[in-house]
């Protein structure tokens, strides 16, 4: 029998849409690893983050960024690290630097990440996101519900966001975001 190897496929096939000068791109190059803070282990974890990535523990509504590694808080005692990484061993690479100061779970495959950018982005976000994203500072984050789907918004620039939602409903999520752009352009 021929040797079979498995191939990774982006959930949306690497979606890359242009809508009247705006762009929606599926970011399948990013790994996502959750880090839970052990009870009474905040200080050790904060130190490991600083030593490992020069990252501060993010505030609940802000992300921190060090190079290409971004940390966002998802709960009082949990955060996500988002960083470019191709192979399915992201958790191990994070755990290597944490050395047991946090509980890690690979979340790469749990999420779809859409990068949205363009002049109509804030108008489009008004149609889908209940949060006050126009007043987010760059780096500001919020987790909410968009078109009945749980989602996170991270402001990455004046007119750009990373949007995260569950990978199983990625088709519906892309539709929701795309419709929002089409309805304002």
């Amino acid at each position: 029998m021929d040797e079979i190897t498995l191939e990774a496929a982006p959930v949306l096939g690497g979606a890359n849409l242009e809508i009247s000068g705006n762009r929606i791109v599926e970011r399948d190059d990013l790994a996502i690893v959750s880090i839970a803070t052990p009870l009474d282990g905040q200080d050790a974890l904060a130190e490991a983050l600083r030593n490992g990535w020069s990252l501060d523990v993010p505030d609940p509504t802000r992300s921190t960024l060090s190079g290409e590694v971004r940390a966002i808080r998802t709960s009082p005692d949990q955060m996500l690290l988002i960083f470019p990484h191709a192979t399915p061993d992201a958790e191990a690479t994070v755990q290597d630097r944490l050395a047991g100061t946090g509980y890690t779970t690979d979340q790469t495959d749990s999420w779809i990440v859409l990068e949205v950018a363009g002049p109509d982005t804030l108008s489009a976000m008004e149609r889908v996101c209940p949060l006050d994203v126009p007043s987010f500072e760059i780096g500001g984050t919020g987790r909410t519900v968009m078109e009945h789907m749980g989602a996170m918004a991270i402001r990455t620039g004046d007119d750009s966001f990373l949007l995260l939602s569950a990978s199983s409903s990625a088709v519906s999520f892309l539709h929701a975001v795309e419709t929002s752009y089409r309805n304002v352009t």
Binding site: Q78, R143, V145
Partner: peptide, 12 residues
């Protein structure tokens, strides 16, 4: 006094 769960938020 009521319990509310931030299901579509920070899970608090």
């Amino acid at each position: 006094r009521e319990l509310w769960y931030h299901e579509q938020g920070d899970r608090s």
